[in-house]
Design a protein around this nucleic acid. Structure first.
Lengths: 143, 143
DNA sequence: GTATATTGTAACTATTCTTGTTACACTTAT
DNA sequence: ATAAGTGTAACAAGAATAGTTACAATATAC
């Protein structure tokens, strides 16, 4: 199943940025993302580990950002929620008796790192503030 | 489950490049990749659609490359086997009554395209010939 | 201090994607 | 005719993601 955590994370963080002055409830976020509140809380748990949000339990609890939207890059968000890489290495180990099989994994592993770096660089060009601008611009266009 | 088709494709194409003068059998490739021959034939089917290989059925059948390894870029290989993108969009459509939910998808979609472009560019820097060199270099080092 | 609203998290189910396997029609050389 | 291949369909197995239910812990309101 395709992993949509990054998409949900950007969505959620944009919502939080739009409500910087209050604590936002998971049920409210869940409604906008169109999923279950527990799914949102799990996501917020990862974002909290990455230091991007802070939550409070209890009556009038909820979540807010820990820093300004212009100080949160998409790379941070991506790293906070992405476990896997762009492509996976072999599921079964290749045959070590084959000259290619013996070395292909380390070559692919280096390639993986190189691509991850390219993604990081590209995502590092944007902040949450940029996303907010784009979302707002979209609103004007389609309103 | 993580998608390892790109890894297998690079592996298989490297093997074919290493045996340019003969038709290689799927069972031989399967042994090196450590999987079932049908899995390999399915993969070869995608690579054939992309114009990278050609196969022959029957007695002494098998597969070979359609062009020189230096003319096959990793980007072509990636495109031949990767259906999905780096990250997925929302599984369920966001709430259109929410200003963020209404526009976030198109913003993320553009971002997706931008990242895909970054990956293409980076993979475009390498050809199958480079992979062969790296695999051979690895052999010398670890032999 | 009791009731209420909220998070945090565990446990289980459902869904979807990838891989592995079996089976068999079709093709080509000997 | 036989043997050795590919191509592909159909199904089973395995693994990852998301959805759901349940409930303990916590914080406010009254």
């Amino acid at each position: 199943m395709a992993n949509s955590q990054f998409a949900m994370a950007v969505h959620v963080l944009t919502m939080l940025a739009d409500n910087c002055d209050e604590r936002v409830k998971s049920s409210y976020l869940a409604k906008s993302v169109n999923t279950n509140a527990v799914v949102i809380r799990r996501l917020l748990s990862d974002l909290h580990e990455a230091g991007l949000v802070v939550s409070r339990t209890g009556y009038s609890g909820g979540t807010c950002l820990t820093k300004d939207p212009e100080d949160i890059s998409l790379m941070e968000i991506y790293r906070a929620v992405s476990h896997g890489e762009v492509f996976s290495l072999h599921r079964q180990k290749p045959d070590k008796d084959c000259p290619v099989g013996k070395n292909i994994e380390s070559v692919l592993c280096n390639l993986q790192k190189e691509i991850d770096k390219a993604i990081d660089e590209r995502l590092g060009n944007y902040t949450l503030r940029d996303i907010i601008s784009m979302v707002r611009r979209g609103e004007e266009i389609f309103a």
